[in-house]
């Protein structure tokens, strides 16, 4: 059933990195289908966030192909492509002279969202993430979790086709995680896809449809949980955590 969904993005990163001649990522291929959640997993420094930066066109050195709905885009920094994605960084990025509402106003203006629609949607999201009372306060003075919520709300406001979420669970309280998952479910129903990186493997296993295990700048394994288990040589029911441990240990040459 899932296989019938159209492919939204096909990525083939031949090589990419921060300097020409020193590729950090090599031969990474994956695709994301409409409404699908793809987990980019891997140990620290494996290159997960670098893959995201590559998709956003932020890497100085990039060689590869991106097919959006089957059509090749100019490159990763193509203006139209960027407008179809929303990036939620691991560290909240905020402007100290704007209130929470103004952050959202600017995001909505960038997305050319009409003001009436923006106001309705923003109020709804603020209520959902329990930030309505703080809408005229300055987020630079918020706690880390609240700042992360600001980033999430700004991304949901844009109604993109693809969410790129870097470590979404860091700093969020359990209630906020529940709200995030519910909001992502709604976005999935709309047809939006999610690529997320995380270290919280238990949540990833429950949340994602497919996985790409990145290790040392390349793909160590990819596919559904069953395929990951098969790649790791684990029996059915083995948690993703154990598969991850085996696959990364193999890559590092440890038994």
């Amino acid at each position: 059933m899932e296989a019938q969904k159209p492919v939204l993005l096909q990525a083939h990163i031949e090589e990419a990195g921060y300097e020409p001649g020193k590729p950090y990522l090599r031969d990474i291929r994956f695709d994301v289908r409409s409404g699908e959640r793809l987990g980019l997993l891997g140990p620290n420094g494996a290159g997960k966030s670098t893959v995201m930066k590559g998709l956003l066109g932020q890497l100085p050195h990039w060689k590869g192909r991106l097919l959006w709905h089957g059509e090749e885009t100019a490159d990763a920094s193509d203006g139209e492509l960027i407008r179809r994605m929303a990036y939620i960084p691991e560290q909240p990025i905020l402007y100290d002279r704007f209130t929470l509402w103004e952050h959202l106003q600017l995001a909505a203006a960038a997305a050319e969202l009409p003001e009436e629609r923006f106001a309705l949607r923003a109020e709804e999201l603020l209520r959902r993430f329990r930030l309505l009372k703080s809408k005229h306060e300055y987020p630079v003075r918020f706690s880390k979790g609240m700042q992360q919520k600001v980033m999430l709300i700004a991304a949901f406001l844009l109604e993109p086709e693809l969410f790129l979420v870097d470590e979404p669970f860091i700093g969020l309280d359990p209630g906020a995680v529940m709200e995030l998952l519910a909001a992502l479910d709604e976005e999935r129903a709309r047809g939006a896809s999610v690529i997320l990186t995380t270290h919280v493997l238990d949540s990833a296993e429950r949340l994602c449809d497919r996985f790409v295990l990145i290790h040392d700048g390349g793909v160590a394994a990819s596919g559904r949980i069953e395929e990951i288990r098969a790649a790791a040589g684990c029996p059915d029911g083995t948690p993703l955590f154990d598969c991850f441990r085996i696959l990364t240990a193999e890559e590092e040459g440890r038994p």
Partner: peptide, 12 residues
């Protein structure tokens, strides 16, 4: 060039 402003998906 502020980080928050420049990270938004602006139309050309």
């Amino acid at each position: 060039q502020e980080r928050f402003v420049s990270m938004l998906p602006w139309p050309p």
